[in-house]
Design a protein around this nucleic acid. Sequence first.
RNA 1: GGAUAGGUGGCAGAGAGGUGAUGCGUGGGACUGCAGAUCCCAUUUACUAGGGUUCAAAUCCCUACCUAUCCUCCA
Length: 453
Amino acid sequence: MKLKDEISGKYVEIGNYSPNLKIYVCGPTVYDKPHLGHLRTYVAYDAMVKYMRHRGRSVFYLQNITDIDDKIINRALETGQDPLALSRKYTLDYMDAMKYAGVDSVNYYAMATHHIKDIIKQIKRLEKKGFTYTLPDGVYFRVWMLKNYGRLKHQSPEEQKTGARAKVAELKEDQRDFVLWKFKKEGEPSWRSPWGEGRPGWHIEDTAISLSFFGSRFDLHGAGRDLLFPHNEAELSIMTALKNSENVCPAWSYTGMLKINGEKMSKSLNNFIPVDDVMQKYSREEVRYAFLSSLYPTDLDFSWNMLEESRKNISYIRRSYEKLEKHSQKGASVDVGSYRELLYRNMDDDFNTRIAISILMELASEIMKANSLDSESANEAKKLFDDANTFLGIIPEQKEKGIPEQSVESLLKLRELLRKKKLYPESDAIREALKNAGIIMEDGGNGTEWRRE
RNA sequence: GGAUAGGUGGCAGAGAGGUGAUGCGUGGGACUGCAGAUCCCAUUUACUAGGGUUCAAAUCCCUACCUAUCCUCCA
């Protein structure tokens, strides 16, 4: 099982050090509603982790929630709310969004505000090693002490000139230095520390959490690509400084940005689609199918049509899945083993969910084309769909709610009688009524079949 | 300007030297009371442009053009 490490640009085997994998993924800053861009990233890591588990790895998947940050405070000030109440509200929204998308592989969500002690401990250790200095507004990290700052960003110190948005803080020793602890301002939430009342900087929140859970080594660090710099660069610096090692984590992976009309979907461009808006119209499976239909590291241009396509394809897969339940002893046999092998081979190759899905489509197509399947093939195919679904999560469960089966069967028989007497308006009325109740009737060559919507 | 990733059919989106990924859409046909679903056939010089390497290039190399992301807010 390999995955591309974006520091080296090379593929690394994951899970070779130990069968017990430790994975950390940067969570959101909860100051606004979750949007589809977040979902894209977390669905991708959800599928990866679930696939690893499916293939027998034990994974501890840790994710942080940044619930104290400038953005949260600013938003709270704008709207006259308590910052921590605001972040609590959006944390719950985020959890709802994850639940909707079927992202349930995370073992632990760590709130930054629950780890203030760890953060302070970590700053103390950095202080001892001489990596910190104090200014009137906070405690800073000394970047120049690390030769390889810029490693993740692939830029030499020469190239790290001040960017467009970089504020030049005259007092900082180096423009690249970042804040570890911010001193309290009027009306802001704060905690006690050896340096004075204040709150943590963004980057140290993540390293305090990841290292206090994982110790001196973990297997995979994931995030959206927009966090690569400065956030992950700073994380890497802190970890390097603390552990005297540049290899605390051997694999840094990134998800591509979700775009809309060719531009990144983001809060600052205000072109984002909140998860709420999609939740009403499309199912969990449809959204996952749409996202997993592209490769996780590439950008993906969102469109509503994408979700419509997903809907059709999922319906096709589900029909073929249902057909498997009607198999007979004799019939065509399908070489399910080769589908499974291809599926695993492509998932092992940097989690190619796009190919995985196309393999399932091909299997579905082969099933649909066959008049009947032998029971062994049918059982194996069913098992493959079930297995793939444990990590892809694109095949919906059959709903058993609504009108009982017996009632549907009786109405179906009644309709058959009416149709034989060519009383079509009456038979169509039954079909229409059942459709409104979530039952779809389809007349075929071998009589009428029905299914729940 | 710098770093990184790209440019593939009407559309979405894989592939990474050699047998048309997959899907959506469109056209035609089968089935059918209608609808729907399904099946069959077609959409067969698709790989930004120009050079180069090779028996063979969408894939490797060079040049140009274009796009996106980041360059201290962001998943």
